[in-house]
């Protein structure tokens, strides 16, 4: 990553943090200042979905071309996605403590993200259980594709078909229209953009580390 990218990332996240904490938000019944979590919590979930999607795309690419670099990209995306899923869970859990009274109470949202973490935890277990690189990559790619099929269900569908305390109409209301104060919406969209920039940087670093590891393994085998 070049220096311009890094400076943009640093400044944009700094601005997001300033916007998250200092800029006043309109009073939202039942939430108050706790609504500010939306600037941090939703981008984490969005990045988790994006990285699992990338993991699935690279897995498909691996199965088509059998290039181990694609497998390295798939596992890196899944790992970064898992990290952001944990961050989404932590930010959500902190919010739940102050809004619902406890860190964890098996709300449909909490249950669905927990199952999602188990699914991707199994992906990493599967990878560590197989020693042969090609076989590992092949099986893990198939698993990553199947695992991604469950992501939209657990993040978007299940929490909406089951009765949940989780706020559902904070960004888009039930009629499908944007339902957010313009100032909040600006900060929110900027936050989504900024965290996505961070995500691509982290993913880039992770892929480069894994590529170096792969090169060393291949050199040792030759």
């Amino acid at each position: 990553m070049n220096n311009f990218y890094k400076i943009t990332v640093f400044l944009s996240i700094t601005l997001v943090l300033i916007g998250t904490t200092i800029i006043p938000i309109p009073f939202i019944p039942g939430l108050g200042d706790k609504a500010r979590i939306i600037y941090l919590h939703v981008p984490m979930s969005w990045i988790a979905v994006l990285s699992f999607l990338l993991s699935m795309i690279y897995s498909v690419k691996y199965l088509r071309k059998r290039d181990l670099v694609d497998d390295v990209k798939a596992v890196s995306a899944a790992e970064v996605g898992f990290l952001f899923t944990i961050l989404a869970t932590i930010t959500g859990s902190l919010w739940a403590k102050f809004n619902w009274g406890s860190f964890w109470n098996w709300d449909p949202r909490e249950t669905s993200i927990f199952i999602l973490m188990l699914i991707y935890g199994a992906y990493f277990s599967l990878r560590s259980a197989i020693e042969n690189h090609d076989q590992k990559a092949k099986l893990a790619s198939v698993y990553a594709i199947i695992a991604f099929v469950t992501v939209p269900f657990f993040i978007f569908i299940m929490p909406r078909i089951v009765e949940s305390l989780h706020p559902a109409d904070t960004i888009v209301n039930t009629q499908g229209k944007i339902n957010m104060n313009p100032v909040m919406l600006t900060i929110f969209l900027f936050s989504l953009f900024s965290f996505t920039l961070v995500f691509f940087w982290v993913l880039n670093v992770k892929i480069r580390i894994e590529k170096l590891k792969l090169n060393r393994i291949q050199k040792n085998n030759i």
Binding site: I13, L17, I18, T20, T21, I22, V205
Partner: peptide, 24 residues
């Protein structure tokens, strides 16, 4: 309290940024 939160969040972010930059 909000300024305090901002201050702590900025320190954490600076730490993460420097760490990422160093790895890069």
């Amino acid at each position: 309290s909000m300024y305090l939160v901002l201050f702590i969040a900025l320190i954490i972010w600076a730490g993460i940024f420097l760490y990422l930059n160093k790895i890069d």
